[in-house]
Design a protein around this nucleic acid. Sequence first.
DNA 1: GGTTCCGTACTCGGATAGTTGTTGTCCGAGTAATGAGGG
DNA 2: CCCTCATTACTCGGACAACAACTATCCGAGTACGGAACC
Lengths: 159, 159
Amino acid sequence: MRMSEGVEWGLHCCLALAWIGDDRPVPTARLAELFDLPQAYLNKRLQALVRAGILSSVAGARGGFLLARPPEKITFLDVVTAVEGPEDPFRCTEIRQRGAGAEAPARDFRLPCGIATAMRRAELAWRRELAAQTLAHMIEVTPETAAVRIRRHYERLSR
Amino acid sequence: MRMSEGVEWGLHCCLALAWIGDDRPVPTARLAELFDLPQAYLNKRLQALVRAGILSSVAGARGGFLLARPPEKITFLDVVTAVEGPEDPFRCTEIRQRGAGAEAPARDFRLPCGIATAMRRAELAWRRELAAQTLAHMIEVTPETAAVRIRRHYERLSR
DNA sequence: GGTTCCGTACTCGGATAGTTGTTGTCCGAGTAATGAGGG
DNA sequence: CCCTCATTACTCGGACAACAACTATCCGAGTACGGAACC
């Protein structure tokens, strides 16, 4: 199980957008330079955040991306779900109903599979923690030097 | 992010081994028949559980697999880690140190990346839930009919 | 001088290849049962 | 009758392909700016 690196990119880009705090949209090229990422692929990833309503995009010259909501309203869970998709990591394929269980009466499977339930409970705890982390909270706990550095670099690139 | 289906297979097979409760090893062919799984590939997956010390294998004729520990000592986390590997789903590549952060002094990165820390916290909650679920607990909450069915089917196959 | 229009540069968005990881299959090494042969 | 030993069938374990997902790249649609031409 490996999480797509688009999650890391998305979170850092959202945080950078919050730090920059500009009304004007920030194009992909600037964001890519901030973290030395491949521009075209980053753009593709950010599209997922736009579809999820986390970012808003502006097309054309002077276009780019903006946070669609204030940082307090953007959670890690939002970003992870947007990039990775809404599906559960563990997918129950009901193998209990195959083989030995193939000819069992249907009422034996009324209750959901206990293994799937346990996995789901764990994933719920994971999601709960992710939902508790907002971008605003991240801004609080991060040293100001990082924010200043991003802003400096961004202004230098915008000149 | 998608969890390997080997996790589901491993958990169901461990549970079946616990239900069967035989001193003699159970070969892959029997386990594969219990859930209608591809035998060769299941064997490959069970090897991971052996390497992790969850199962013990017996080679040769009348060989097969056995639980290496009592069901109370086998957690979901053990199985997941054995199959999926010990790496964290989220992998921090320290992109904060690239691009804008490339020329920053090293002391700015003394503290671990806040984003990585938050992701790790969520994964810790996930692991905590997985570690709390033992095979023995799964036996308790599962209807007896399932256990009986597995045993019946296994004895019929062993004839 | 002000206004309109056109050309240009720029940016997002989706369609198109390359690479890594997961799934699936096969054959060899090793082991226990089995049956024959000899004592 | 009992013991020894070679044969046989069986099972795990790792090496070898097929497939899917992720990563990376390119080009087209659309937009705002800038400048020239005209009133």
